[in-house]
Amino acid sequence: MNKSHLLSLLLAVALLLTTYKLVDTRKKAEEISQSSSTKREAILSVIHERKSVRNYTDQKVSKDDIMTLLKAGMAAPTGFDARPWQFLVIEDRNTMLELRKELKYARGLDGSPAAIVVCGDMSKVREEAPEFWITDTSAATQNILLAMEGMGLGGVWSTLYPGKERMEHARKVLNLPDHIMPLAVIPFGYPTGVEKPKDKFDANNIHWEKW
């Protein structure tokens, strides 16, 4: 084989390798794009399908699923990375019914197989931002509710804070220490399907640049 033929062969091989790499790169880019699109659709679906669920089947929620919910809660954003949250899981029906007595609007507790009480831990708050526990635990509560929707569960945010009587009642029933502030109780379980998501979008609530 003369030099001319060898050079042509090498150029052909180089061209094939370049073409292969381009095709492979394009394929990977398409896979990433498709994966990103699927992820986006899944996340937005969970957000828009979330609803307040107060009616549940008798099916119990496994400990593993409850831990998954709590991990989602602790993945919430938190000012100064303080993580000023504590979570109390209730599965005892008598405790939930006792808690329900002074919580007029927490009717989800009437039939839920479990509940999570989201609390702020005052021993973890920063002096320069003492009220951040409210936003941090609220973000954790929303994370839990979204995780429930994504897992085929359902729950409802039942407010404790800032109602002093509601908070004191929860503190008494649940034997909460003084440095623990109850923010909300989330009754949850497998939904019966009664509740449906609501379209709450209103363009009149959107403002650009300045009011």
Results as ranks from 00 to 15, higher is better:
residue 140 A to V: 02
residue 85 W to N: 07
residue 35 S to I: 01
residue 17 L to T: 13
residue 64 D to S: 13
residue 72 A to C: 07
residue 180 I to G: 10
residue 122 M to R: 06
residue 91 E to T: 15
residue 148 M to Y: 01
residue 61 V to C: 08
residue 24 D to F: 10
residue 120 G to Q: 04
residue 202 D to E: 11
residue 175 N to Y: 00
residue 42 A to Q: 07
residue 185 V to P: 06
residue 4 S to R: 15
residue 43 I to L: 08
residue 138 S to N: 02
residue 192 T to D: 07
residue 160 L to Y: 01
residue 157 W to M: 11
residue 79 G to W: 05
residue 19 T to L: 15
residue 209 E to P: 03
residue 89 V to W: 04
residue 204 N to W: 00
residue 203 A to P: 01
residue 130 P to R: 11
residue 94 N to F: 03
residue 64 D to R: 09
residue 200 K to S: 10
residue 13 V to K: 12
residue 168 E to Q: 14
residue 144 I to N: 11
residue 111 G to P: 05
residue 120 G to E: 05
residue 134 I to T: 04
residue 82 A to T: 09
residue 206 I to S: 13
residue 61 V to H: 05
residue 193 G to H: 06
residue 57 T to F: 02
residue 22 L to I: 12
residue 128 E to Y: 04
residue 10 L to E: 07
residue 39 K to N: 11
residue 40 R to Q: 10
residue 22 L to P: 00
residue 34 Q to I: 01
residue 128 E to L: 03
residue 128 E to H: 09
residue 205 N to S: 07
residue 68 T to N: 10
residue 50 R to N: 12
residue 179 H to F: 14
residue 201 F to K: 05
residue 103 L to S: 07
residue 3 K to M: 01
residue 168 E to R: 09
residue 18 T to F: 08
residue 8 S to I: 08
residue 58 D to G: 00
residue 134 I to R: 06
residue 81 D to K: 05
residue 52 S to F: 01
residue 63 K to A: 15
residue 206 I to D: 12
residue 175 N to H: 03
residue 138 S to I: 00
residue 204 N to F: 05
residue 4 S to V: 15
residue 26 R to D: 12
residue 190 Y to R: 14
residue 25 T to F: 09
residue 145 L to T: 07
residue 84 P to H: 07
residue 180 I to D: 09
residue 45 S to I: 00
residue 32 I to Y: 12
